[in-house]
Write a protein that binds this DNA or RNA. Structure first.
Length: 479
RNA sequence: CGGGGCGUAGCGCAGUCUGGUUAGCGCACCUGCUUUGGGAGCAGGGGGUCGGAAGUUCGAAUCUUCUCGCCCCGACCA
């Protein structure tokens, strides 16, 4: 058992922070609410980025960059948008030693600047669609920051597209929701429910918001990615007009969608255990670590290390990248070295000791199950590949089973309250209420909110209003 | 921003109420020896303007005021 990590059962929040610290993912910055993403954490982000970026490119999107400073007046142009973001704006009021005539907001999201630019770029239906993505940092002044989950500055990706028709924009919104679900489930091994948000959970300025909603290992919900159909709200606010096929002036239909470094938080809280971090193989910066082991340091360094290097080279070759690391910390005792990699979440540990050499085997130890497997040297490469796939699949299945085991149905409001308060987790119930109803439910249940409307046409009688045709919705306490 | 807790070595803490030699302890770190396949033992050693600022005092980790930060619980949120 790890001795520097608080067990989850004792204090989940502390466990989360301990895991991050033990794995060296991030550290607190001198500015409140800001964090430093350390090399190990950043390497994970780079891998996540790479998966999404190639998925965006495959769906026809291109990358661009828009400025971090946005004129404050831009936020005034969309009524709901300004209301939603005003409390979290950081404002630059001085520059070059002088007070600015108009303050600049540090971007909390870029719909406004991008809308402004799109209005200049888009003239004709022939200019559409515009499919642009940007990778950048954003700032939202947070009252209660938490590493990765809610920091004042965070890294993300924001896609902004403009289309000729509402149908096309809706299609884009759902397409990107699907891309998010695929990458989050297949690469991060985090199962999500991809569906629509209720009115109260909508992005400020959006017509419809869709989410990928995940369940963390304390059975609370985490929004892991959102995709918005913005209708013509921003087009009208920023005058994004084009001449249509009939020669008339028309407003564009726009979308926006984003995922952030919060996904690293999702990763931690989905897979990790009381021993520390667990990273799914497909996004792990180090997929396998090789430990030459000997009581005699010089044997480890001179005899075993060369064999380890040869093995590492073959593994990297077979895995298609520099994914193998050799632990040369020979002076440390084996148990200490095991824990180091355990806490960093390396999916697979390869122990190469004198006993193994004598037997012509390598000992493989899985991070997800702790299972130890002795494999003939000639089979190591194949076995590693297979085990990495197994680990990836197992992490996903394990998380999905956990979610299903912690999902309940409520036939009425009393049941919903009872489940939320006594069991936690996701509660399915038919809901057709208003934003006011959502607020009331949140107050009366001690924090449960509608997280996502289940995909598919599940209709029934609303547990609040009693109306028929209400949609089946997940309620939960959320991060 | 409201309620509660807390800032003393990298981490975890004692000392603060009742001011007074040189500010301690455990882990971690460094050196040596013995150990070594799921967090070793002994010995020696390095490391602190006590979160910061101002004040009271002959004297402040300790008292006063202000301030910054962290954690937990609420309201707000990717």
């Amino acid at each position: 058992m790890a001795r520097n990590i608080t067990p989850r059962q004792e204090n989940y929040s502390q466990w989360y922070l301990d895991v991050i610290k033990a794995a060296g993912l991030a550290d607190y910055a001198p500015v409140r609410g800001c964090m430093v993403i350390r090399p190990t954490g950043y390497a994970i982000w780079e891998n996540i980025q790479a998966k999404f970026d190639s998925a965006f490119k495959k769906t026809g999107h291109v990358n661009a960059y828009f400025p971090v400073l946005i004129p404050n007046s831009f936020f005034q142009k969309e009524a709901e948008h300004v209301e939603g973001f005003a409390p979290e704006l950081a404002m630059v009021t001085h520059a070059g030693g002088e007070k600015l005539e108009e303050p600049y907001a540090v971007r909390p999201t870029s719909e406004t600047v991008i809308g402004y630019m799109y209005s200049k770029w888009i003239q004709s239906w022939r200019d559409l669609p515009v499919l642009i993505n940007q990778w950048c940092n954003v700032m939202r002044w947070e009252k209660r920051p938490r590493l990765f989950l809610r920091t004042s500055e965070f890294l993300w990706q924001e896609g902004h597209t403009a289309h000729e028709t509402a149908e096309e924009a809706r299609e884009e919104t759902l397409k990107m929701l699907g891309v998010y679900r695929d990458v989050i489930e297949n690469e991060l091994a985090v199962p999500v429910i991809a569906g629509e948000k209720t009115a109260g959970e909508r992005f400020p300025g959006a017509v419809d918001t869709y989410t990928c909603e995940a369940m963390m290992s304390d059975s609370k919900a985490l929004q892991a990615g959102t995709s918005h159909f913005l209708g013509q709200n921003f087009a009208k606010a920023f005058d994004i007009q084009y001449q249509n096929r009939e020669g008339e002036l028309a407003y564009c239909w726009t979308t926006s969608w984003g995922v952030s470094t919060r996904l690293i938080g999702a990763l931690i809280m989905t897979h990790s255990d009381d021993d520390g971090l667990i990273i799914p193989p497909r996004i792990a910066p180090v997929k396998a670590v090789i430990l030459p082991i000997s009581k005699d340091e010089s044997i480890a360094a001179n005899k075993i290390l060369p064999i380890a290097k040869e093995l590492a080279a073959k593994l990297d070759d077979s895995l298609g990248g520099m994914y193998t690391k050799i632990d040369t910390d020979f002076h440390a005792r084996p148990a200490d070295r095991f824990f180091t990699h355990l806490q960093k979440g390396v999916p697979l540990r390869l122990e190469l000791g004198e006993k193994d050499l004598a037997a012509g085997t390598v000992r493989l130890v899985r991070r997800d199950t702790g299972e130890k497997i002795d494999v003939k040297s000639e089979n190591v490469i194949d076995t590693v590949k297979k085990l990495l796939d197994d680990i990836q699949a197992n992490l996903f299945t394990r998380a999905k089973n956990f979610r299903e085991d912690n999902t309940y149905d409520a036939a009425n409001y009393d049941e919903l309250k009872e489940i939320i308060n006594n069991k936690g987790g996701f509660v399915r119930a038919y809901f057709g209420g208003s934003i006011e109803d959502e607020k009331r439910i949140k107050e009366e249940t001690g924090g449960a909110t509608p997280r996502v409307i289940l995909p598919g046409d599940n209709r029934g009688k609303c547990f609040i209003t009693g109306q028929d045709n209400a949609r089946l919705t997940i309620f939960a306490k959320a991060y």
